[in-house]
Design a protein around this nucleic acid. Structure first.
Lengths: 403, 403
DNA sequence: TTGTCTCCCGGCGGGAGACAA
DNA sequence: TTGTCTCCCGCCGGGAGACAA
């Protein structure tokens, strides 16, 4: 979406609520950007209380609704370890914009620094229309002060999210070729209760996915011994979403009883389909060009962000946290997402064009040979020191022994 | 494909045929490019006779084979009026790289001229993996002499293409829900003859599509009156390719009897799916950035080209031909592809950033209101004066009265 | 010549419990 | 508790000619 269209979309969303003065500003995102760029950073975080209209302008107007349930479903589909920055937060954007395992030439024709400090102006949580793969589109405004950060920023505490019941199940072979066996806990916590007095209890469930599409499932209680199952409608869902054994489904139940359903594909099934409308070369030049333009004119620019695929943004606090750890060659770590162990075998610049960049600065070696290709370079914030706390499956952001 | 990989692919293709000196050069496409850039333009066209190895290096090594049949099938799927430049030809590339009906801001941050004269170094004819939509990836080398061309270039005559039998049929409703009724002429000209002595003649046809995938069809002769039909295998093809009534299928028969099959979707069903790996903004900045870099360093760059969708390249001779026509406001024309009539209502620059650019300089008005969106701006070479010759369905490139 | 209909049969998909890990 | 198998029934998809444009 280009800037002009976005301004219009926002206006359309809440036209009657806007006071005239705000309307003029809100209608022109470029103008608003310029104003915001002149304000101290902390003001942005405070907009939340200053103006609800501006908050809505700055907040996600994403996809189908942007309601709490949508956001929770998105996060559930993205996986537990994906964290997305908040609006108003300071982040670092990697202007290299190219992953090291793609063997593309790493030029730096625009002489950009290796990373740029930005404020998050907007986050849109989206899902790929055909694969349901989740991604975020993040709108950034370059900071005027680009000096290397030293101390973490402080933000108001995250508002408490409503307690939602959710459940994720990895599909078995039987689930994909026959009906879906509903685990007991999922049935108890997330599904409306069946009337067990009836001889063959049955009800129809309606669950919305990330695109707002409704899926109808016949929820029954059968088999010997009896169990909860999803029958009619389930196979349509499986084939439409092209699910196979090993993929996961997520069920989510809102406080009002509303049901949501999402999918998460097995790690090795990630699909990237570069558009034929653009070449790889142009793709790699496009984002640096946009970044450079935004940096020069202090205007917003937009970055796509695919969890686990192409992440060019890291929260400032997370960055500081990671680089303050002393990464020695030989130290053993766990990859944040893959969950596999690896060892650091070198610390070096990704490219001579960006000296002292922390992005993909760690050369690593994996313990086990894997069928799926894994990166041989990672960024400090993508890995997790192996500590005893991990044995309990708890992924702490600040493991005590790593400081 | 990046440059390094391409060099390797070429080496792999004909390793034993290459003399050592050529091998070193051919292995380094960047080096070769620099050498070619120093040569006068006409030498490029003459490489055809100088070195078969270099010709193969410069020619398409596209998709699955790049054989004649593939090329002919690609052209048949693209449609009769699509013309792709030849390797060695001079073309103009629109550095605006953005279509006027997309409402994106037309900046020119790199101060590029409105068009750049290039030599075509390579053309790869490809098809979208999931939709079979055809497109070309064209590798260009900017010319050192960028002065406005005045006289057309001359090239050796196009080598005669082998006479191939081909047939295109628009699918009826019955074709998509039941078997495919083979038109008499298609059966006679393109399919192997059935043994009509048998009581129920039948044979299996194997046809390859643009991806090299083989499709098997049971070819039978039945019904009352008798007719040729494709039965078993046909419905798989229809659902795999997601064909509906109104789409077309193309059959092609090589001289050796080899069968090919392709699809062409109805005009209003064109699908564009921008990749979520890149934003629209970056996409529009990417190609200008690549162009600018190539222009500055006299290196090759690559442009994707979708017939009827996004075409940023026009042959130099075609360009001269078109701009030498006097386009008056009020003159009536036919759109090259849509086949619909329209009237020129204005001649103006697309944007103040590119003055006197011929790209999308004609503001037009369509005779009939249409359900599908049609451009309100076209380039001079995209339209065809309405002449009596068109009544015979012959699309002349240089209609005599238009000069 | 070829588009559409209807009829008819066989196979496959889904709905059920059985059984075992 | 839940993954997999098998059985069985109903219906839908495809294979055939009829008929008309």
């Amino acid at each position: 979406m280009n800037e002009e269209a976005r301004g219009k979309a926002i206006l359309k969303a809440t036209p009657s609520e806007l006071a005239p003065a705000e309307e003029i500003i809100a209608g022109n995102v470029v103008l608003l950007t310029k104003i915001l760029a002149r304000l101290p950073r902390k003001s942005i975080a405070r907009f939340k209380s200053v103006s609800k209209h501006w908050l809505s302008l700055l907040s996600s107007i994403a996809g189908c609704g942007g309601d709490d349930l949508y956001k929770e479903l998105w996060k559930a589909c993205a996986g537990p370890l994906v964290d997305i920055p908040r609006v108003g937060e300071r982040v670092l954007e990697a202007s290299t914009n190219v992953e090291p395992n793609q063997r593309s030439p790493l030029f730096n024709p625009l002489n950009l620094p290796s990373q740029i400090i930005c404020i998050v102006m907007d986050i849109q949580l989206r899902a790929e229309r055909d694969t349901d793969e989740v991604y975020a589109v993040i709108t950034l405004l370059p900071e005027q002060d680009q000096s290397e950060p030293t101390s973490p920023d402080s933000y108001p505490p995250e508002p408490l999210t409503p307690m939602l019941k959710s459940f994720c199940k990895v599909l078995t072979a039987s689930d994909t070729i026959s009906g879906f066996t509903v685990p007991q806990r999922l049935a108890n916590e997330c599904l409306p209760a069946l009337d067990m007095n009836q001889q063959s209890p049955m009800q129809e469930l309606i669950a919305k996915d990330l695109h707002g599409a409704e899926w109808r499932f016949k929820h029954i209680f059968r088999g010997q011994p009896k169990r909860h199952m999803l029958a009619t409608g389930w196979s349509r869902f499986v084939s439409s979403k092209r699910l196979v054994a090993g993929d996961s489904v997520v069920f989510l139940r809102g406080e009002n009883g509303e049901l949501r359903v999402g999918v998460r594909r097995a790690a090795h099934r990630q699909s990237t389909m570069p558009s034929s409308l653009i070449t790889i070369q142009s793709m790699h030049l496009g984002l640096p060009a946009a970044t450079s333009q935004a940096l020069a004119h202090q205007t917003i620019f937009t970055v796509p962000n695919k969890p686990r695929m192409s992440e060019f943004i890291v929260g400032l606090n997370k960055y500081l946290d990671a680089v303050n750890n002393r990464f020695r060659v030989g130290r053993r770590f766990k990859m944040r997402f893959a969950g596999e162990d690896c060892t650091i075998v070198g610390v070096e610049d990704l490219s001579a064009h960006w000296e002292n960049s922390k992005w993909w600065s760690l050369r690593v070696q994996w313990d086990k040979a894997a069928s799926i290709s894994r990166p041989d370079r990672v960024s400090p914030w993508e890995i997790e020191p192996i500590t005893c706390t991990l044995l309990f499956g708890v992924a702490l952001r600040n493991p005590p022994d790593a400081r």
